[in-house]
Nucleic acid binder design. Structure first.
Lengths: 199, 199
DNA sequence: GAGGTCATGTAACAGGTTACATGATTGA
DNA sequence: TCAATCATGTAACCTGTTACATGACCTC
């Protein structure tokens, strides 16, 4: 149900093709919802059929034709009505956390490496978000931007994305510290009461 | 695929019934994975069939019998092997963020209220996490706990849950500020160049 | 006696993922 | 010439959600 509104919300930025949206909704880019291209193509067909978006075929030379979608009045209204509903709580679903939960009976070095990779992703996303932020601010400071813009929404979701990734980094650093301390303790088992985990 | 390992990881805490797990995996409680009771019952059947967990029927007077599940050696090994795999990135999927993205063309007051409710939830979860933390620490400080325990995993996921909810609160406070400033500007339209959104 | 908790489930459906297919163009 | 990008899609499958059902107990 909410992919529907996520797509409508994305089209507030202007018309887009399925391919364009696939880039915006890519896991590594998304800041308010993510989806695969297949989900998007299905959803776009449904939305067009329901009259919430309008499709227009753009003929291209040297490129396959593309269908470009725009919000209709009905789509805009449906999106507006959606904002008045009660959002369901976000479900935690992170494989890295499952692995972390089980790290003591599992492969500590592998989990360590996965945490480091997650941190690399977080850095890349932060860089992306920062570029987006600068583009929105367009030289103004935050207060000036907020006073002048007619759309704060994208800025607010960007802020959430940013703080999420910053927390990923902070958490990751702490996890690495703790795992490394354990690794050191495990190598000289005389030092403490630490039980060596069974792998 | 990963609900499977999430269930195995939960059983590291000791034997549990489907009902017990349903409480742990409840959206409002979960700190490393969430799932509905129906998903759990299906998954438990599959895991028992695959020999990764063992079921034992506990007869109860005055209560329906329950099936209590325990990790088998094979289940433990499978979970250990899972920790060595590459976790997939977490997908952002939050209806509140979709609503926030569209707040400017939607119902600002309703979104405001949803943000406040999300903050209430965050406070409740934080209180829960804090109780859990105190139970784990058992009077020791963090360093002492980490040196003595044979399982850091649950503590690390708890930390991630805590910082996530703290960020929800921080973000929420900022969003309320910004939306309120807009509401004030909208009521005295002479004050600035703010375009009143169409609702 | 109403509503909550314990305890388990079925059925039907909606949502999400994976693998594959096509075919031209552009850049290293 | 090899890989990536543009642009769309089908088929099959797995995961997740919703509604409903049962039945006894306990607490207000």
């Amino acid at each position: 149900m909410s992919l529907k509104y996520a797509v409508l919300a994305a089209l507030l930025e202007g018309e887009a093709s399925g391919y364009d949206l696939a880039k915006v909704f890519d896991v590594s880019v998304a800041d308010f919802w993510s989806a695969t291209p297949q989900q998007l193509y299905r959803e776009l067909d449904r939305l067009a059929e329901g009259g919430l978006i309008a499709a227009r075929v753009v003929e291209q030379q040297r490129r396959p034709n593309k269908r470009v979608f725009t919000l209709t009045r009905a789509g805009r209204d449906a999106l507006g009505a959606f904002t008045a509903e009660a959002p369901r709580p976000t479900a935690v679903r992170d494989e890295l956390l499952v692995m972390t939960q089980a790290v003591d009976i599992g492969d500590r070095d592998a989990v360590r490496a996965s945490v480091e990779e997650r941190m690399e992703w977080a850095r890349a996303k932060l860089a992306r978000y920062e570029r987006l932020r600068q583009r929105l601010l367009a030289g103004r400071d935050e207060d000036a931007f907020l006073a002048e813009t007619d759309r704060v929404g994208p800025y607010l979701t960007l802020m959430r994305g940013r703080s999420f990734e910053e927390e990923n980094l902070r958490w990751g650093r702490r996890v690495l510290e703790i795992l490394d301390r354990r690794a050191a303790a495990g190598e000289e088992p005389a030092s403490g009461g630490v039980v060596r985990p069974v792998v």
